[in-house]
Amino acid sequence: MSEFEPKIITILCNWCTYGAADLAGVSRFQYPPNIRVIRVPCSGRVSPKMILSAFHNGADGIWISGCHPGDCHYITGNYYARRKFMLLKNFLEYNGIEQGRIHFSWISSAEGVKFAEVARDVVESVRKLGPAKYFIKKEFIDSNLCNCLNTDNNPDKNILEEQAA
């Protein structure tokens, strides 16, 4: 792998964007394999600590997506999510996190195309930034490296070696 392949923690709400991801699958819309999806009931469930924790653990990017404002399965959950995330994103960027590491989107379960498009955009924008630099806890990365070096044929070996260097 010559190019840097980012790993992106992706948190999707069950009712809309997770459905969109399913639909993208059914429709065979291709997108890069860099995202790791965590399913939650509602984007309103996502708390700031998850975003910070993802950075602690060395995630290169974070993408959170829910229902369109107004479409929330739980009536108002995504409004809270939107408000919370806009502040959090601005505040993180104010702290030095690069623009383009944190992504929020609103994708309905009928928007398989949009899901694939946004997934591509997210991966590309994180790829451009290179590996994560800030808010990483050293101990995690070190233990990654150990594990990684002990495992043969680990495709992520190169990346981690790069990161360690």
């Binding site: 960027e93 104010y94 702290n95 030095g96 996190i97 690069e98 623009q99 630099k133 800030y134």
Partner: peptide, 9 residues
């Protein structure tokens, strides 16, 4: 700059 901000804090 982003990195300066990070260092500042």
């Amino acid at each position: 700059s982003e990195s300066d901000r990070w260092s500042f804090f």
